[in-house]
């Protein structure tokens, strides 16, 4: 009974994907139309238009302060936390504009797992970190929660390292482990999109490689939007590269086209300086 229920829940996403027509799968999962973010001091994003393809790793590339993080946070409306920001335009996720106030924010945000520059485990135990989103979703079945915690920790390769100390505080883990815990925590709520804001910038090379390999595996089921300014990481991971500069999209396309044959002087200069 329990296994059956669990099977149903864990495969809900795959089933819903199977139901999708080929046209639906080829349709972009996110359509950004005229997205602008400004403060009283100036514009951060200048009327951005962008389509995010489904089940791909889309890399947002560009120098610091070009608006990559703001674009990422506009997608799950974390910009709402900053009252000074004025957000305009449309962000359509599966055809629904998430910028409209009528959208149910918590449910909408659960569709998008967030991985920050630095890991931010919640001030509770390892176990409670992973089960946090499930409890918010209303899941009360302890066996189901325990199974989800185990399977998601296994998915990010953390289970063997923490299975004997699940009740320890999450901040007792190393930074690399904390980042994987944050990923497991995000995956537990079964998002369709993963927003990753320079998730490896605070990690050592081994942890970075682990996270990158995870992204490669995860893209089969998830759309990943990755902010980075590490060019080699973009080359290693990207299916689609978006180069931003001063709040604008300068170039976008397949990494082979964009990074090997840049069309604009700004990108050429960025690639030379970046390399």
């Amino acid at each position: 009974m329990f296994t059956e229920k669990l099977f149903k829940q864990t495969n809900a996403y795959t089933k819903s994907k199977l139901k999708m027509s080929k046209a639906d799968i080829e349709k972009p999962i996110i359509q950004i139309k005229g997205l602008s973010v400004k403060t009283h001091e100036g514009e951060i994003l200048k009327s951005i238009n962008l389509d995010i393809p489904r089940n791909k790793i889309v890399v947002l590339l560009g120098p610091s302060g070009c608006g990559k993080t703001t674009l990422l946070k506009s997608l799950n409306r974390l910009t709402d936390l900053h009252k000074e920001l004025i957000v305009g335009g449309e962000v359509l996720i599966d055809g629904k504009d998430i910028l409209k106030a009528s959208q149910d924010l918590p449910i909408m945000r659960q569709k998008m797992g967030l991985l920050s520059q630095r890991p931010f485990p919640l001030p509770v135990s390892i176990y409670k970190n992973v089960s946090y989103g499930l409890k918010l979703k209303g899941v009360r079945n302890k066996k189901l929660i325990a199974h989800s915690v185990e399977s998601n920790l296994k998915r990010v390769g953390l289970w063997d390292e923490v299975k004997d100390r699940l009740n320890n505080p999450a901040n007792s883990l190393s930074i690399g482990q904390q980042q994987r815990l944050c990923l497991a925590r995000g995956l537990a709520v079964k998002p369709t999109i993963i927003l990753a804001d320079e998730p490896t910038s605070a990690l050592d090379p081994i942890s970075t490689k682990t996270i990158e390999n995870l992204f490669k595996e995860l893209k089969e089921h998830y759309t990943i939007i990755l902010v980075t300014h590490v060019l080699r990481q973009a080359v290693r991971l990207a299916d689609h590269v978006v180069f931003m500069y001063y709040g604008d999209i300068i170039e976008q396309g397949h990494p082979d086209d964009i990074l090997k044959n840049p069309q604009t002087e700004i990108l050429k200069k960025y690639l030379i300086d970046g390399n």
Binding site: L78, L81, P106, I107, G133, K137
Partner: peptide
Amino acid sequence: EASLSLGA
């Protein structure tokens, strides 16, 4: 942000 993004 982590808490909100998990649906809080």
